[in-house]
Design a binder for these strands. Sequence first.
DNA 1: TTGTAAGCGTTATCAT
DNA 2: ATGATAACGCTTACAA
Lengths: 347, 347
Amino acid sequence: MTKITISEIARRAGVSKTAVSFAFNYPERLSEETLRRILAVADEVGYAPDPVASNLKTRRTGCIGVLVPQPIPIMTRNPYLLTFIEGVGEVCHESGMSLMLVPPLKGNLRRAIVRAAVDGFLTLGLETFRGTMVVLQQRGVPFVMVDSDPTSDIPCVNIDDEAGAYAAMSYALRKGHRKIAIFGIRSGYHGDYHKYAGTLQRRITGYARALAEHGLSLEDPAIQLHECECDAAGGYGGFHALWQSRQHPTAIVAMADVIAIGVMQAARELGALIPDHLSLVGYDDIEASQLTCPALTTIRQPTVEKGRVAAQLLLQRIEERSLAAEHIVLPVELVERASFKALDAIR
Amino acid sequence: MTKITISEIARRAGVSKTAVSFAFNYPERLSEETLRRILAVADEVGYAPDPVASNLKTRRTGCIGVLVPQPIPIMTRNPYLLTFIEGVGEVCHESGMSLMLVPPLKGNLRRAIVRAAVDGFLTLGLETFRGTMVVLQQRGVPFVMVDSDPTSDIPCVNIDDEAGAYAAMSYALRKGHRKIAIFGIRSGYHGDYHKYAGTLQRRITGYARALAEHGLSLEDPAIQLHECECDAAGGYGGFHALWQSRQHPTAIVAMADVIAIGVMQAARELGALIPDHLSLVGYDDIEASQLTCPALTTIRQPTVEKGRVAAQLLLQRIEERSLAAEHIVLPVELVERASFKALDAIR
DNA sequence: TTGTAAGCGTTATCAT
DNA sequence: ATGATAACGCTTACAA
């Protein structure tokens, strides 16, 4: 059974290809009689225009790509991303677009970019100095960066990472803690934070600023930075490693709630009571953070809004309604819950 | 600036279009010298083959579509789906495919199906008697159904819904509960469970079977069925409504963990202590269910595996390695945690 | 209101 | 090893 095409429908209905095309795209241009006949034939044989051919001709796919830096099965382990996609999805829903997840193809993001049939990209945590930026420019479709370093010509949506990190660390210090472990997101630089860029860099800067205000620094032996995979297993493994060492911090500042949740699970197993033996503050405020015991103190970021804003910006570019390279920074906020206690409330 | 095409590269490199195409698709067929020159020119001007044109010619998109029955921003409110996608993502990752979320287009799933440029679909919770099935058949790409009623010619992946529901209800009854509320997933039939199909129907059957073994039925006034939206807000709102009425059940059997989590939040607000005043059992075993206080007793389904199996089946069909309409049923298992207590342990 | 015909940018067949 | 040329299935000026 060979594929039925527009020509076949035209032949059977005794009209031209144009008429058949009109029947699907501009039905009002056809006489009722003709329209009805064409649709009847199409319906009978189950014809619908081939979307790929249509995409080629119209130069539109009706799909936006979300460029995720990691394979899908890894990315899905951080619910933060699902929430981001919720925001993107709102805009897709309103504008009738669909959404494609574009992970690296055989470890290669570039191949994925050139092969993805989309009208534009949203990039997540892309490091701007990498070649990926260039590939995206060459690819010729608009894109909006999220969680990156803003550049002059590309729209960019961020949260105030530095302020959030400052708020978390400053809170820990004000509560009297001086032995603090930072559970960071794996960077690829093995803890060499001087090489950080983008989100990680801004957060480290925020931590450092808060520490400096208390006469401390990231180099201080009482302040430890542990990088871990950005999922619960990462925090879980990281805490196991930490607790085996001699150095027990009194507080942990995590760069992601999923990591903090992994820490909680490990802490429970190892008999470290939160918040009595150990205080914990996360970052993101994912839904699950309200559910943990104790509920997780964290830095809330407006994740849905971030997705919505980024998608709107992208859509404007796709529809050429705007070419402005806006740089948007969304606010964050400390949410006090039960996982963090003042040091002197314990001693 | 006009778009650069393969012809332009061919002209600049002084070769034919064929050679340029080979440079990207079969580099080994070209002499080193020619290959190098073509790639150099392409690199210089930032050319890469247009994916849509390539898709049209090869009749392949390298993308599989996940047909979600609801708009993306609604679907994302159930983490179960993210976990399912994790499984699908594993297969995508191995096979170099990407993944497209295909929600209804302007409320219309049919339009979404005919417009999506994908090599195949995974359908989620599709009701087989609906026209959607026919549209999918006509669309001409393979598809695999998940959480539906198996039909003779289409591969289908399910969990043992009936056994899971039976296990949950039977557990509640064995624990001595007789006033039980079922928090079901919104069906579109306003609680008229005789009209249920697919997953919902099988679950209701399981509940009914357990009830029957204890001389009860779904018609019994002590057994109430409440349908709610399948997210935390649904369970939250549903419990508020329930608790206002005179009829306070001693146990709640929920069809989804997200619903159960919403119930927990509402119960806390209304002073109904779980499990002392009220026992609760969910369905799915999402990650968050280990985190709640108390941890949620639930029916675990192998969600990641479900995604993986379904995607593998689809891939086999896409690559024409198999045409078998396999019907796979994955097992479920009761996970006892802290949210459920025997009635006499309380009284 | 409908038809003719020229692309869209590739890949694939068949030559040379 | 490379080139000419015909598809792939559709949309869209322009013409009638």
